[in-house]
Design a protein around this nucleic acid. Structure first.
Length: 404
RNA sequence: GGGGAGGUUCCCGAGUGGUCAAAGGGAACAGACUGUAAAUCUGUCGGCUCAGCCUUCGAAGGUUCGAAUCCUUCCCUCCCCA
C-alpha cells in the first residue's frame, strides 16, 4: 500500500470517532513527516474503571501503534493528588500513593485489552511525579507568569461557576497548567482525549510553543449517552459498559441500551463497516432487538472473542427469552436437607443482605424452588441435591448436599 | 473582622413539640406486562428474635410525660459586606 493510501485510510478510520482536531493540517503534516509520533496519554487514576467510551481513544492509539508510533502512557500520580476539577463541584479526597499505585495497575490491566504494552518501542509508562515532585517554586512561578488569569477563567467550566457564584479554588486553576506542562516534558506530538480535557491540553500546546517545541495535535473524540440513554457513561451512574465487565455483563448491558442509541453505538464502539451500518439503519425499525444483539456480539468480539460472543448471545436468549434456567449457575453446598427458607437464601447471599431485605423478597414473591414460589420466609422446606433456587430476576443457585 | 442562611433516611427535598422510621420526587429492588428498549400499573425501600421492639434527622449535653422540631456548647457548609 502506498504511503498516501495508508494516510487516507487512517484519516478515514479516525473520522469515524473524531469530534474535533486541532488542527487537521498539523495532523496531516505529522503523518507526512514520517516521524515516529509520540502520543501522550495522560490518565488520572482516581478511579480505574475504563469503559468502551474511553476505549474509543485507546483504539485510535492502538491504530497508531500498529503503524509503529509510540504511546506515552502518563500516570498522573502527582496531579491526581491535587484532583482534576473537571466536572466536579466538590473537592476530591486526597488519595494515598499506595492507592494510586494500585489503581494504576488496575488501569493498565484494562488498557491492555486494547493497547500494546509488550513492546517498549510502542509504549512507555511514565509518571508525572518524576518531574513535579522535585519541581522548584521559582520554576513554577515562571510557568505561572506566562498565563493570565483571564485565560484560565475563560474555560467554560470556570465561566459557569462564576456565573453561578460558585467557588473556584486556586489549585483547580493550577491543574490545567500542570497538565499542560506534562505535554512539554514528554514532547508530546499528539494527544487523543475526551472533549472535557480540551482546555487543559490546549495549555499544553501553549507551553510547548512558549518553550520552543512544536505544539501537540489534539484530537477530541465523540461520546455517546450511557446505556440508560441519559448522561454520558460513568462509573458513578453505573450506566457504562466497562472493559472490566465480564462478557456476560457486557452483553446484558448492551441489551439495556435504548433502541435509538444502537446506531450510534455501532458506529462509535465497533468496527462494523459504514456501509453495513447504513444497511442496518434501514432495517432497524423492523427488528431493533436483532440489531441490539448484533451490537452486543460485536462489542464482545472486540474485547473477548467470537466464541464468547456467540455463547453469551445463546445464554441471553435461553435465559431471558426462553426463560430456561441457565446451567452454569453457582452451587450452594449445604449440610442437610431440612431448611427454614430464609436461612437458605441468607446463606446464598452470605448474609450480605439484611434479613429485613430478604424477608421482603419472600413477601414480594421473588423466591422460588424448582419454579415453585415460596412466599413465607419461615416456611420449612425440604430440599435435595440438584434443586434450583431462584431469587429475583437474576439470581439462581443449585443445591448440593454434602455429607457431614 | 461584620452580617445572614443552613446541616433530615442512597441523592434531591418537605417537615418546627406528640397522629414521624419521617411528605414528595429520583435512584434502587420485587411483582405484572415485555424485547434485561421505551411506556405503563402495583408494591417495597433503617435494623431486628418483625402485628412488637430497637436505632436514626451534623455532634455532645439539657428542658419536657414526650424532641428531627425548644435551649446550650461544639463541628461543618454556604451566601453577603469589608
Amino acid at each position: 500500500m502506498s504511503a498516501s493510501n495508508a494516510k487516507k485510510q487512517l484519516l478515514e478510520s479516525f473520522s469515524r470517532t473524531t469530534d474535533e482536531i486541532f488542527s487537521l493540517n498539523e495532523f496531516e503534516e505529522l503523518i507526512d513527516s514520517k516521524k515516529k509520533i509520540r502520543i501522550k496519554y495522560g490518565v488520572d487514576v482516581t478511579s480505574p474503571y475504563l469503559h468502551i467510551g474511553h476505549a474509543v481513544n485507546l483504539w485510535m492509539m492502538r491504530e497508531l501503534q500498529d503503524l509503529g508510533h509510540k504511546v506515552v502512557f502518563l500516570i498522573g500520580d502527582f496531579t491526581t493528588q491535587i484532583g482534576d476539577p473537571t466536572g466536579r463541584n466538590n473537592t476530591r479526597p486526597i488519595i494515598p500513593q499506595s492507592e494510586i499505585d494500585k489503581n494504576a495497575e488496575e488501569f493498565i490491566r484494562q488498557a491492555k485489552m486494547v493497547l500494546r504494552f509488550d513492546d517498549p518501542d510502542l509504549l512507555e509508562v511514565r509518571r508525572n511525579s518524576e518531574w513535579f515532585s522535585k519541581y522548584q517554586l521559582s520554576e513554577f512561578l515562571k510557568l505561572l507568569s506566562m498565563v493570565t488569569h483571564s485565560r484560565l477563567i475563560s474555560r467554560d467550566m470556570f465561566q459557569r461557576r462564576i456565573k453561578n457564584q460558585e467557588d473556584i479554588y486556586l489549585h483547580e486553576m493550577i491543574y490545567p497548567i500542570l497538565q499542560g506542562y506534562d505535554s512539554y516534558v514528554l514532547e508530546s506530538d499528539l494527544t487523543i482525549i475526551g472533549s472535557d480535557q480540551l482546555f487543559n491540553e490546549m495549555l499544553g500546546r501553549f507551553y510547548q510553543q512558549r518553550f520552543g517545541q512544536k505544539p501537540q495535535v489534539i484530537i477530541t473524540t465523540k461520546i455517546t449517552q450511557g446505556i440508560d440513554g441519559k448522561a454520558k457513561q460513568s462509573k458513578s451512574l453505573d450506566n457504562y459498559i466497562g472493559l472490566g465487565h465480564s462478557s456476560r455483563d457486557k452483553f446484558g448491558r448492551c441489551m439495556k441500551v435504548p433502541d435509538e442509541l444502537i446506531l450510534d453505538y455501532l458506529k462509535i464502539y465497533t468496527k462494523v463497516p459504514k456501509e453495513e451500518i447504513h444497511m442496518i439503519e434501514k432495517e432497524i425499525v423492523r427488528d431493533p432487538m436483532r440489531w441490539k444483539k448484533f451490537l452486543a456480539e460485536e462489542i464482545i468480539k472486540r474485547y473477548h472473542d467470537e466464541t464468547s460472543a456467540k455463547n453469551e448471545r445463546e445464554w441471553f436468549e435461553n435465559t431471558f427469552s426462553k426463560k430456561i434456567t441457565p446451567k452454569d449457575i453457582p452451587v450452594l453446598e449445604i449440610g442437610g436437607s431440612q431448611w427454614v427458607a430464609i436461612d437458605l437464601v441468607n446463606k446464598y447471599f452470605d448474609n450480605s443482605k439484611s434479613s429485613s431485605e430478604v424477608r421482603r423478597l419472600f413477601k414480594q414473591g421473588a423466591v422460588s424452588v424448582n419454579g415453585e414460589n415460596i412466599s413465607l420466609f419461615d416456611a420449612s422446606i425440604e430440599i435435595m441435591t440438584g434443586d434450583v433456587v431462584k431469587v429475583g430476576k437474576r439470581n439462581w443457585f443449585k443445591i448440593k448436599i454434602v455429607g457431614n
